[in-house]
Design a protein around this nucleic acid. Structure first.
Lengths: 117, 117
DNA sequence: ATCTTATTCAACTAAACGGTTGACAAAGAA
DNA sequence: TTCTTTGTCAACCGTTTAGTTGAATAAGAT
């Protein structure tokens, strides 16, 4: 259990190789060897990347003889989507509204004691 | 211009302090000093965090005398939301469909030359 | 039993990261 | 002009991260 699940997910997806792995796992489950093939990296490096995705809850793994196929889990995406959607909404709503103008005003202006007489 | 804009955004949001700053900027624009106040961190540390958010395109800054208020930008959220939505959809669609079963089958099974006879 | 395949573990390295302190610059206020 | 506020820059430090090589484990295949 992480103290910061959302942080772990964002952190996992910050790496382009890992994002690409996710993209490929969205098409089909794959073993470590299969996943490693297209990259110019060692199997061990991919194994590590996979573990990061697994710890973040983005990927689950089963067993098939020596192989340990990885499977993309949809659930965690909701956590992120919710967070993003929330702040995007707030940012957009605030975009052309009154409070934007108010924020730009000084304390004096807000209290009505302007310099006009 | 970053080589990996999406990575920069995910990376920026991987830090809990930065996520919290975003949450607060969603409520109202704020200066570096205002932002720093609730945390047990130096102004310089917050200034750095703000720069990371700015570089990722999550925040823009204006000028007001000595102050440099930060403002949350909604646009970049779309980039993330799009990425996430895409793979979440694919992962969900694949969840209980035929191809999940097919992937679990060996080459032999797929080619029809099973061990019967 | 031995060999091969698939994967992980352990130890190491270079670079990036989050934080600090201290000095500096820019712009108002006295 | 000098003082104060607001913010950044530079150098440094300890920890984490992404990668490597090499050894170990687990499970089939011969």
């Amino acid at each position: 259990m992480s103290a910061d699940p959302l942080g772990e997910v964002f952190s996992a997806l910050a790496d382009p190789t890992r994002r690409d792995m996710v993209a490929r796992l969205a098409v089909a489950d794959a073993t470590v060897n299969e996943l490693a093939e297209p990259y110019d990296l060692t199997i061990q490096a991919i194994s590590k990347h996979l573990r990061v995705l697994e710890d973040a809850g983005l990927v689950s793994r089963t067993r098939d003889a020596q192989r340990r196929p990885a499977h993309l889990e949809a659930e965690v995406f909701d956590l992120m989507a919710k967070w993003i959607e929330r702040y995007r909404r707030e940012a957009e709503e605030r975009y052309s509204r009154l409070d934007v103008v108010l924020e730009g005003m000084s304390e004096d202006e807000l209290e009505g004691n302007g310099e006009e007489r």
